[in-house]
Amino acid sequence: MQRHEHAEFAIDLPEDVELVDQPGTFLVARDGSGASPFRANLTVVAEQLPEPITLDEYTALGVELLERRVPGFRLIDRAATTLAGHAAERTLATYLVDLERPVSVTLEQWRLLVDGAAWIVSCSCDTAEYWQAAEAWTACAESLEVAR
């Protein structure tokens, strides 16, 4: 793993990922080493919240939005955890994407609230490759440090 430093946060990433600049996203790290046409990726996003909200409410709203907008979205698990020294919620889900062929994608997300900002670490890959990525994703998410 290598440490990625950003003005707003720091996170450990696998050494072989490609960093991509994407507007509205602090970090997009892609891995094209799998056999799937879907490239595994890790993103870090944050948004300033306009009004106070609980972590439970924020997570529920995020899951509801995904259920409405993402084809075949299915929540598998939702659990409380700790990330960057703060209470966090981890969700695990699958959805469908049509690329060269239909692909089932596994989406693992960690959400936390820090000083009025909502942070999300999202990791996605072909469901058939999830078993290879899960441990590394957890290590990456757990390494997150948010600047104060």
Rank of each mutant, 00 (worst) to 15 (best):
123 C>S: 10
108 E>S: 09
141 A>Q: 01
99 L>K: 02
141 A>K: 01
98 D>M: 04
23 P>H: 08
143 S>P: 00
3 R>W: 06
38 F>V: 00
20 V>T: 14
24 G>H: 01
1 M>H: 13
92 L>M: 08
100 E>W: 05
116 G>P: 04
87 A>W: 01
15 E>L: 11
100 E>R: 12
76 I>H: 09
91 T>N: 01
97 V>F: 05
115 D>L: 07
117 A>V: 07
100 E>V: 10
93 A>L: 08
9 F>H: 06
107 L>Y: 09
127 T>G: 12
24 G>S: 02
112 L>P: 00
10 A>T: 13
44 V>T: 08
79 A>T: 11
146 V>Q: 10
22 Q>F: 13
6 H>Q: 13
130 Y>E: 05
7 A>T: 14
119 W>F: 07
132 Q>L: 14
68 R>E: 13
105 V>L: 02
125 C>L: 03
18 E>S: 08
117 A>W: 11
130 Y>W: 10
130 Y>V: 01
17 V>C: 01
112 L>S: 05
60 A>S: 12
93 A>H: 03
64 E>N: 15
104 S>K: 07
109 Q>A: 13
61 L>H: 08
88 A>N: 00
66 L>T: 05
121 V>G: 02
24 G>V: 06
92 L>E: 14
4 H>Y: 15
14 P>S: 11
145 E>N: 12
126 D>E: 10
51 E>T: 06
1 M>Y: 15
12 D>K: 05
74 R>G: 08
124 S>F: 08
68 R>M: 10
6 H>A: 07
139 A>T: 03
148 R>P: 02
142 E>F: 09
83 L>V: 07
63 V>M: 08
30 R>Q: 15
5 E>H: 13
7 A>K: 12
43 T>D: 01
69 R>Y: 10
73 F>I: 03
44 V>K: 04
19 L>S: 03
44 V>H: 07
132 Q>P: 00
47 E>C: 09
51 E>M: 14
143 S>E: 02
109 Q>R: 11
22 Q>W: 05
55 L>N: 02
24 G>P: 01
56 D>G: 03
73 F>Q: 01
140 C>H: 08
3 R>Q: 12
102 P>I: 08
16 D>E: 15
39 R>N: 14
6 H>E: 04
45 V>P: 00
20 V>Q: 11
102 P>E: 07
41 N>L: 09
